[in-house]
């Protein structure tokens, strides 16, 4: 879109091809999520927020997570930190992200430690500057921690202690990361207490419940009592992938159909994101030191 004016930029050492430009998106822009049942577009502000995505297998959780990650990938100042026990769900973003964690709980825990350190450093920095939270165009960008299949890390892989440690670290990041731009988007099939500690689950402000098999499962995602009030994602048609109830700004669940990125689309967006990030030097693959953000 703004290819013309960036062609004159001398700073970018673009070789023979066009100079990569940012997509012009910012994580401070709300993410386009889909449409609601009245045909109106639904935008989800993700900055200073966290989202929990639940729903039965095949209900479209990973697709929604991909939409959120896709938005963040096109934001120049957002680093991606992807944890995916299933590898393929977020795997298409592997080249565009800073850290990609597959089914390796120790790597996951090491990564969360890094994020936690960054978070602490950022708070120390903010305190030194007598500020309470970051804003747009700040000294440092935001970090999106997207975790698909939390259950793999918090209930399946490793031993109980590792799982507990993972949950505790994630809870800390969800609880404290908000103000320094660390956003957590997590998906799991049924976030019941044997999968995620309720103390972690209840911290997520925003919830998306794709189709669930029972009213109780829907309530586990959305919060207790919504099914009794008529908001149960059990009523969603099982063949209607990507439809579900979203609790966001209004505080009342809204029936939403999530937008869908096909694999080709994801690859296209991811390649572009990788390319722009490589050229602008934003991408630091695994050997970045966590102390970098402390400066």
């Amino acid at each position: 879109m703004d290819l013309t004016d960036t062609l004159e930029l001398p700073t970018n050492p673009g070789p023979s091809d066009t100079v990569p430009v940012g997509a012009g998106l910012s994580i401070f822009d709300p993410v386009f999520l889909g449409i609601d049942e009245f045909g109106q577009p639904v935008y989800l502000p993700m900055i200073y927020r966290n989202i929990l995505i639940g729903g039965e297998p095949g209900s479209g959780k990973s697709s929604l997570l991909n939409t959120i990650v896709g938005h963040a990938a096109l934001c120049a100042d957002v680093r991606l930190c992807l944890l995916d026990g299933k590898q393929v769900e977020l795997g298409l973003w592997e080249d565009a992200c800073d850290v990609f964690v597959g089914p390796d709980i120790h790597h996951a825990i090491r990564t969360l430690y890094r994020v936690q350190t960054v978070m602490d450093n950022r708070y120390t920095f903010l305190k030194a500057r007598r500020r309470r939270k970051i804003g747009p165009d700040d000294l440092f960008g935001q970090i999106l921690v997207a975790c698909d299949e939390i259950a793999y890390f918090s209930a399946t892989a490793g031993d109980e202690k590792t799982q507990k440690l993972f949950a505790a670290l994630l809870r800390d990041i969800v609880a404290r990361g908000r103000a320094v731009g660390i956003i957590v988007a997590a998906a799991t099939q049924r976030p019941s207490s044997d999968i995620i500690p309720t103390s972690l689950r209840d911290l997520f402000a925003w919830r998306f419940a794709g189709r669930c098999t029972t009213d109780v499962s829907s309530d586990i995602v959305l919060g207790h009592g919504w099914a009794a009030r008529g908001f149960s994602s059990n009523t969603v048609d099982p063949n209607n992938h990507g439809a579900g109830y979203l609790i966001a700004e209004g505080g009342i669940p809204a029936l939403v159909k999530a937008a869908y990125l096909t694999d080709t689309d994801i690859i296209r967006v991811a390649d572009y994101a990788t390319w722009t990030r490589r050229h602008t030097g934003t991408l630091t693959t695994d050997n970045a030191s966590p102390a970098r953000a402390a400066a």
């Binding site: 386009f32 937008a259 689309d265 967006v269």
Partner: peptide, 12 residues
Amino acid sequence: HTIVSPLPDYVP
């Protein structure tokens, strides 16, 4: 019906 995400439109 499927809602197509507008994200690919941001890619030149």
